[in-house]
Amino acid sequence: MNSVKIEIPSEPAAKLTVEKALLEALQKHSYAEKDIFAVRLATEEAVVNAIRHGNKLDSQKKVVVNFSVTDGRVTVVVCDQGEGFDPAGVPDPTDPRFLEAPSGRGLMLMRAYMDEVIFNEEGNEVTMIKTRSK
């Protein structure tokens, strides 16, 4: 399996390094546009969450992204050096009370676009899996 590891600093623009490598791998394996859109969006949300909420933009901390792309499926693991969080404690952004909140939609999009989204117990590492669309 062809696995790629990328370490980025805790700056929002650094996510582009991950995006570029991931897009290349997805295109190489001829994934459909809608799969590429899904994986790209979920990964961006996970990486931005790791940078902003996990590492709190601390320049001393890194985000590590591991991904593997095969003909059948894509696995992306995003790990930060923050304290972790409880995904169950994140409010539902579609609740009318939160519909106009400017943030809080990343996790929901990750779950909507990937087949599996699994956090480690600590809550500072997420594994996302998407199977190629038929």
Binding site: R40, L41, V48, S103, R105, G106
Partner: peptide
Amino acid sequence: YLSSAALG
């Protein structure tokens, strides 16, 4: 393409 940052 857009992400949740844009929605905000």
